[in-house]
Nucleic acid binder design. Structure first.
Length: 404
DNA sequence: TCTGGGGTCCTAGGACCC
DNA sequence: TCTGGGGTCCTAGGACCC
């Protein structure tokens, strides 16, 4: 079963502020250079969609009300929702901040069957949170996801094994979870438009064109999916942050200040979750939107802000920047668990203590209560301060410990 | 007046080694 | 006058998801 919140961020905002109810609203990330994260169904009626920039959205819907997103509300609600799910299912996979898979294989009979359990959950979420959800139920995750997509908004749909071929026969392949624009257009070039056609396509043909995912594509066309609802969170493979700057920058000091802040965000989150990594990736987006990445593997694992920062600066310095920079990002991968071993050398031990002390201060008094002086070195740094924005890919508890 | 942010997985080419 | 085969690791880019 997939439980998918309807227009999640927008609905939460409407719920918190009754003046917004029944009106076209769009939740955005920040005030500048941003896009619509989620919009209410009232706004969708005008053609407003996720990912649109604010001008485009405003043009389609002049009365559109913009609301800056509030991470804490969505995260809190998501965690509360998970408690509700636990009443109904033994395995709950919080797939994203607004979608959860529930394995009700062994529990639905306790609640009167699949449809009844779905209706119970819908009613309970409405009662407790005042939010609408759409529920898709089927014999695997792929089809549950499809069922919910077809039933939106405020719907409930069950697709049984017998019904599946009928549903899939004329369904455009791109409606399936995992087939995006690129794959859909490549399939179309092969004369495959619907899931029915995809399911009948020779597997060798698909393998030749798509490699390893070829056989999976055919299976998807047939409505088959072997993935399971995982009860526990899987460890993170990377930790990263990026930011589109309020304006394009090109001075070294501005880039330094921005990378320092990103390094601190990445380092702090890694330390919080006891993770270390040894691959630093820097992403750069130019004014022209040309975007590229450069990465460097280090000899040692780290989650130290300064290690991350100096590596990132090395990468920047080895690159000849061709244009003003619109976005910078840093991500740490090659992740292992930080088992808290004390470093051998005094110097490193002192750095660790320093970072721990800074983290503790910021935990207690709020982010930015204590910060690195380099932030202040560029006179513009205040305007380059990243606005922490939650993304729909957020998961409760954020990064979990890795099992390896 | 343009075009967010955080992830995962796969591919392909090249360096390097035996 | 011509140069094999097998493997791993690293890097960059792209597809896809929410």
């Amino acid at each position: 079963m997939l439980v998918d919140m309807d227009a999640y961020f927008a609905s939460v905002e409407q719920r918190c502020n009754p003046a917004l109810c029944g009106k076209p609203i769009a939740v955005i990330g920040s005030d500048k250079r941003t896009v619509v994260t989620t919009c209410s169904y009232e706004a969708r009626a005008y053609g407003v969609k996720t990912g649109m920039n604010v001008y485009e959205a405003k043009k389609l819907c002049p009365g559109l009300i913009f609301v800056t997103g509030n991470n804490r509300k969505y995260a809190y609600t998501c965690a509360e929702l998970a408690k509700t799910y636990a009443v109904y299912a033994d395995k709950v996979e919080v797939y994203s901040i607004d979608e959860s898979f529930l394995d009700v294989t062994d529990t639905h009979h306790l609640f009167g069957g699949p449809i009844a359990i779905g209706n119970d959950i819908k009613k309970e979420i409405k009662r407790l949170f005042g939010l609408n959800v759409t529920i898709g139920i089927s014999y695997n995750k792929l089809m549950a996801k499809l069922a919910s997509d077809l039933a939106k908004p405020d719907g409930l749909r069950l697709i049984g094994r017998e019904e599946a071929p009928l549903v899939l026969e004329d369904l455009p392949a791109g409606k399936l979870w995992g087939i995006g624009r690129g794959t859909e257009s490549r399939l179309r070039l092969m004369g495959i438009n619907t899931c029915g056609e995809l399911g009948r396509a020779p597997v060798t043909l698909l393998r030749n064109k798509f490699g390893i995912i070829g056989s999976r594509l055919k299976a998807m066309g047939l409505g088959l999916d072997a993935s399971v609802v995982s009860g526990e969170q899987i460890g993170a493979k990377s930790v990263g942050h990026s930011m589109t700057l309020p304006r394009d920058i090109y001075k070294r000091e501005e880039i330094e200040a921005c990378l320092m802040r990103l390094s601190e965000m990445v380092g702090r989150r890694s330390r919080k979750h006891s993770l270390m990594g040894r691959v630093i990736t820097v992403v750069i987006r130019y004014k022209s939107f040309k975007t590229f990445t450069r990465q460097k593997r280090m000899l040692n694992f780290t989650n130290d802000t300064h290690d991350i920062y100096f590596r990132a600066m090395e990468i920047i310095d080895s690159e000849r920047l061709e244009e003003p920079v619109r976005l910078l990002g840093i991500s740490l991968s090659g992740i292992v668990e930080d088992c808290g071993q004390e470093p051998l050398f005094e110097e490193e031990r002192r750095r660790r203590k320093l970072l721990r002390a800074m983290d503790a201060i910021n935990d207690r008094f709020g982010d930015g209560a204590i910060e690195w002086a380099i932030y202040k070195s560029a006179e513009t740094s205040a305007s380059l301060r990243p606005v922490p924005v939650i993304s729909p890919a957020w998961r409760p508890g954020g990064v979990r410990k890795t099992s390896v």
